[in-house]
Simulated scan of single mutants.
Amino acid sequence: MSMATDAAESDAGEAGRRRQPLARGIELLTHMIESPKDAHGVRELATRLSVSPSTAHRLITDLEKLGLVRRAGNGTSYRLGLEFLRLAWLTTGRYPSQELALGVLQDLVAQTGESAFSSLYDDQRRQMMFTSTVESTHPLRYTLPLQQWMPLHGGASGLAILAFLPDSVQREVANGPLAQLTPDTVTTPDALLERLAQIRRDGYAITRGERITGAVAIAAPVFGLVPGDVAGAAGVSIPESRFDESTAVEFAIKVRAAAAQITANISGQRLER
């Protein structure tokens, strides 16, 4: 091995070490955000990050200086700081995804009588999360979990997203671990890819009990600022006991129109009706 190669590898290793505090700081903040606890001790955070307590203390001290965390009432534990909350509010204000979808979902509920939802897709995770729901007035309905990352292969929303992603991503997901979310979840790679091809042809996905047992869902993709880039999905969920097969195509047309409207809202275009 040449000296030049040794030096390059050393520089790369040093760069990796310099990036670690930032990555660990983000991981620490992520844990504090997602945890149901209000305050966190240094030893707890150290265990979570698999680092020593002294390293965790240095990280938390740096974040405290930036205002991203602050000491809790007992002085020995930490909670999210006001600067973090300020940045979160600014980000939400600049990308009001819920506002872009909320009115459309309300219209969709009025048109179908069923609960409506929207979701967002994360390209790095290869996962989706439900971000907005408007529930129907029916006493029997399914409540979707919000702000939780979920796999793409189970449920209409995930399938509607996956079907419009590049073929290479579809194959990557299909050949990766496919969790059996319910007895009806498709977990065979070839069957999943065939299903995705049909969804792409139809422009929407319909599932029966594939993410939640007893629930039917119809969803269509929502696209982002760049044409063709999938941003998420929109759709309706229906208890299987109330689902009328004869309304499936009618509902699918309404769902596709709602997804197209959210896409137009994202791009700032006026959708012709």
Rank of each mutant, 00 (worst) to 15 (best):
M1Q: 11
A4E: 15
T5H: 11
T5M: 12
R17H: 07
R18W: 14
R19Q: 14
Q20V: 05
L22I: 15
R24E: 14
I26A: 15
L29D: 09
S35D: 09
S35N: 07
P36F: 04
H40S: 01
E44S: 12
A46M: 10
L49M: 12
S54W: 03
H57T: 11
R58M: 11
L59R: 07
K65I: 07
R70V: 11
A72D: 15
G75L: 07
R79S: 04
L80W: 06
L80P: 03
G81V: 09
L82K: 10
E83M: 14
E83K: 13
L87W: 13
A88L: 14
T91Q: 13
P96L: 10
Q98E: 14
L108I: 11
L108P: 05
T112R: 04
G113V: 06
E114F: 15
S115L: 08
S118N: 02
S119D: 03
L120D: 03
D122G: 04
Q124T: 09
Q124D: 09
R126I: 02
Q127D: 03
Q127M: 13
Q127T: 11
T133D: 01
V134T: 06
T137C: 01
H138A: 14
P145K: 06
L146F: 04
L146E: 09
M150Y: 00
G158M: 10
L159G: 01
L159C: 10
L159Q: 14
L159S: 04
A160G: 05
A160H: 04
L162M: 08
D167V: 15
D167P: 00
Q170V: 03
R171L: 08
V173E: 08
A174V: 05
A174P: 06
P177W: 02
Q180K: 15
L181M: 15
P183A: 12
T185C: 09
P189K: 05
L193S: 05
A197Q: 14
Q198M: 05
I199R: 08
R200I: 03
R201V: 13
D202W: 02
R208P: 00
G209V: 08
I212W: 07
T213F: 00
G214W: 06
V216I: 10
A220S: 13
A220I: 09
G224I: 02
G232A: 03
V236H: 02
E240P: 02
E240N: 06
R242K: 07
A248F: 02
E250C: 02
I253Y: 01
K254L: 14
A257W: 06
A259S: 11
A259W: 09
A260Q: 13
T263I: 03
I266D: 04
S267T: 13
R270C: 06
E272A: 09
